[in-house]
């Protein structure tokens, strides 16, 4: 079973957000990296870019497939994980820690309420897998 971290918020497109005040750290979930397989390239946005909830801000490429990454929150990109340029495999090895993708200064904190908590996301993954 994929690892799901308790205090994070989750989008149905399989990104997580770790909220700290007005800032959110964003990455893809263990479930997502497991389905993607070996990540070979991560396309990062520019620092300062405005992003909105539900819209794409980058891409993760694995041997198997290309996948767009969607932002779980709206705001401005304050930091990107440059480590991923040289070590894209961090997404596989440490999806919730060293494999984080961007940090965002949130423009609308209420959006967090539209995201799932760990229990809801866990159930969501089970249902999605069961469908197939």
């Amino acid at each position: 079973m994929p690892v799901i971290v308790k205090d994070l918020k989750y989008a149905d497109s399989h990104e997580w957000a770790k909220v700290d005040g007005n800032s959110a750290t964003i990455g893809i979930t263990d479930h997502a990296q497991d389905h993607l397989g070996d990540v070979v390239y991560v396309e990062l946005p520019e620092v300062g870019k405005s992003i909105s909830q539900g819209s794409g801000f980058g891409a993760v490429e694995s041997v198997k497939a290309t996948s767009d990454v969607y932002s779980p929150v709206s705001g401005k990109v304050t930091e990107v994980n440059e480590e991923l340029n040289s070590s894209p495999g961090l997404i596989n090895a440490s999806p919730y820690e060293n494999g984080w993708i961007i940090k965002v200064e949130m423009s609308d904190k209420d959006e967090i309420n539209k995201l799932m908590d760990s229990d809801q996301y866990s159930k969501f993954c089970q249902e999605e897998d069961a469908k197939h």
Binding site: H14, I28, H31, H35, D68
Partner: peptide
């Protein structure tokens, strides 16, 4: 990621 991982 969008459209369900299975589709991915």
């Amino acid at each position: 990621m969008r459209g369900g991982l299975w589709q991915l």
